[in-house]
Simulated scan of single mutants.
Amino acid sequence: MKRLLMGLSTAATVAAGATPAGAAPPNIYHTISSAHGAAVVVSTVGCEQTEIFVSSSTAMYAGQPGPVNKQGLTAVFVRVTDTCAEASGVSAAAGGGAVLFQADGQNMAPLVVDPRLTAASISTDIPGTDGDGNPVTIRLSATWTGTGPLEHQTTNVHNNYPGEGNVNSTDNSLRRTATAGVSVAVGGVTASGTDTSALLEQVKSRCIEVARPGVEDFYPCFGFPA
């Protein structure tokens, strides 16, 4: 589930090389700067287990020429399970037991994070639905404190499209393990807990298109950074 949450906020990639001799100037290049935090909290009291999955991000992206766009995305999933009960079908939890309550939702609230990934936070009310499809509001508060070393990775990619042009891209990624404190309130359920193996990530990327002379509609970076 944590891998899935990290996938909610993903950035595709990638570095600029020299323009080939005789090639036209770059048609366009795309840039992105994004940061993402994820956490999973599981707490158990007797037979009742409460799980909270949180993903929050903030991003800035632009095509040149073009405006700079900023966007946030925060998602949360809450599930309460009776682990001592037996259930099947949609009422069964992934790890067994009967689901007593669940809710999920997302909004455009951005993660607040420092550039070195030492701390991040999000506090927001998220519209969502419960397990029966009824509308609910999920009150979320989460903080991340960096605990591990700052990991850095750079990826450079050059792709040649025969007869069309070239694409050069770069991806600079930072990553740090963190301790997250999470609390939620929804549908009469109030829960909180700590994830000592939470993650903070940051990605800065650029994608450049270089079309060959006479080639039009060469946009391999289209959809970047999705």
Results as ranks from 00 to 15, higher is better:
104 D>T: 05
120 A>F: 07
146 G>V: 01
50 T>M: 01
44 T>D: 08
108 M>G: 10
81 T>S: 14
126 I>C: 08
104 D>Q: 12
119 A>S: 15
95 G>C: 04
101 F>A: 00
68 V>A: 10
43 S>H: 09
127 P>V: 11
69 N>Y: 11
138 I>E: 09
47 C>R: 10
100 L>P: 00
128 G>T: 03
68 V>L: 13
46 G>T: 07
54 V>S: 06
120 A>M: 11
110 P>S: 11
46 G>R: 04
124 T>H: 12
73 L>D: 10
44 T>A: 08
82 D>V: 07
45 V>P: 06
146 G>H: 01
125 D>R: 11
54 V>F: 14
63 G>A: 13
111 L>K: 10
132 D>M: 07
72 G>R: 12
86 E>D: 08
53 F>T: 14
47 C>H: 11
54 V>A: 08
80 V>A: 02
57 S>N: 09
64 Q>T: 15
93 A>Y: 03
81 T>M: 08
125 D>C: 07
97 G>S: 10
76 V>S: 13
61 Y>G: 13
58 T>P: 03
50 T>I: 10
103 A>K: 00
65 P>Q: 07
70 K>G: 14
107 N>Y: 07
95 G>N: 14
50 T>D: 01
42 V>M: 08
62 A>E: 09
123 S>A: 14
87 A>C: 09
121 S>M: 09
95 G>D: 14
115 P>V: 13
92 A>T: 09
98 A>I: 04
46 G>W: 07
104 D>W: 05
88 S>W: 12
83 T>S: 02
131 G>H: 02
93 A>D: 15
82 D>G: 05
63 G>T: 12
92 A>V: 05
144 W>P: 00
141 S>P: 03
84 C>R: 01
138 I>T: 15
65 P>R: 14
108 M>N: 15
108 M>C: 07
148 G>Y: 02
110 P>G: 08
86 E>I: 11
81 T>D: 10
128 G>I: 03
129 T>R: 15
55 S>M: 08
56 S>W: 02
126 I>M: 08
56 S>I: 04
87 A>F: 05
102 Q>P: 01
79 R>C: 01
92 A>N: 06
147 T>I: 02
116 R>T: 10
57 S>K: 05
107 N>P: 12
43 S>E: 10
122 I>V: 15
91 S>E: 14
46 G>D: 09
107 N>K: 12
77 F>R: 05
110 P>H: 03
53 F>L: 15
147 T>Q: 03
69 N>M: 14
67 P>Q: 07
132 D>Q: 11
61 Y>C: 10
100 L>T: 00
55 S>V: 05
139 R>L: 04
99 V>F: 05
136 V>A: 01
91 S>V: 11
104 D>V: 00
142 A>M: 04
102 Q>W: 12
79 R>N: 01
128 G>L: 02
81 T>Q: 06
118 T>E: 14
126 I>N: 06
119 A>D: 06
113 V>L: 01
80 V>K: 09
97 G>L: 09
79 R>T: 06
65 P>N: 14
94 A>C: 04
104 D>N: 08
47 C>W: 04
113 V>A: 05
89 G>K: 01
94 A>T: 09
122 I>L: 13
